[in-house]
Simulated assay, not measured.
Amino acid sequence: MGRYQQDVMVGQHMLIADEPLSVGGSDAGPAPFDLLMSALGACTSMTLRMYAERKGLALTRISVALSHEKIDLDGSPRDRINRSITLDGDLSPEQRQRLLEIANKCPIHRALSQPLLIASTLVESGFTPTLSVE
């Protein structure tokens, strides 16, 4: 196992997270920020698919591309995720605009777009996975 490599248990699924070679990892899996962006991309696509199916829209394919950058906002450093959504299908301009509005309502987008509270505690126990998501 690499220096930074982590086994991530999500229910019955196991993932590997790691850092790229450029920062001392072994690049055995996505970096944590890449996993975060993957969650946003997957949630966006799933939310759009559910909406399109409910409304009977002719949406045939969804592609979500994400990138991350550090920006300066009023003198404060901030993280910005750029999300580019490609919608294939016979959709009107109004339907496309509505789908963009729906994309902004996906649960991960909502969580990341507001102050997020994280409660951390130390737990004493026997062997547990390095990371576990419940």
Rank of each mutant, 00 (worst) to 15 (best):
L57T: 03
A58F: 00
A58P: 06
A58Y: 01
A58L: 06
L59G: 01
T60G: 04
T60S: 15
T60N: 10
R61D: 08
R61S: 07
R61F: 08
R61A: 14
I62W: 04
S63L: 12
V64G: 05
V64Y: 05
V64M: 07
A65H: 11
A65G: 14
L66Y: 01
S67A: 13
S67Y: 00
H68L: 12
H68I: 04
H68Q: 10
H68N: 12
E69Q: 13
E69V: 03
E69K: 13
K70D: 05
K70T: 14
K70M: 10
I71Q: 15
I71R: 15
I71V: 15
D72I: 11
D72S: 10
L73R: 14
L73T: 13
L73Y: 13
L73I: 13
D74Q: 14
D74N: 15
D74W: 08
G75S: 09
G75T: 10
S76D: 09
S76W: 02
S76G: 00
S76N: 11
P77E: 08
P77C: 05
R78I: 04
R78S: 09
D79W: 03
D79R: 01
R80L: 09
R80C: 04
R80F: 03
I81F: 15
I81R: 00
I81E: 07
N82S: 10
N82E: 09
R83T: 02
S84N: 14
S84Y: 10
S84E: 15
S84M: 10
I85S: 06
I85M: 08
I85T: 14
I85P: 08
T86C: 04
T86P: 00
L87P: 08
D88M: 03
D88N: 05
D88L: 00
G89W: 08
G89E: 04
D90H: 06
D90P: 05
D90K: 10
D90T: 11
L91V: 00
L91H: 02
L91A: 01
L91I: 03
L91Y: 06
S92C: 04
S92K: 02
S92Y: 05
P93R: 00
P93Q: 07
P93L: 00
E94S: 15
E94N: 13
E94V: 11
E94R: 15
Q95I: 05
Q95P: 02
R96C: 12
R96E: 11
R98E: 14
L99K: 07
L99W: 07
L99T: 09
E101K: 12
E101G: 10
I102P: 08
I102D: 14
A103E: 02
A103N: 09
A103W: 06
N104C: 13
N104H: 12
K105V: 04
C106L: 03
C106Y: 03
C106Q: 02
P107I: 04
P107R: 01
P107S: 08
I108L: 00
H109N: 10
H109A: 05
R110Y: 01
R110L: 13
A111F: 09
A111K: 10
L112V: 09
S113K: 05
Q114P: 06
Q114D: 09
Q114G: 06
Q114S: 11
Q114Y: 08
P115I: 02
P115N: 03
P115K: 02
L116Q: 07
L116D: 02
L116S: 01
L116M: 13
L116K: 02
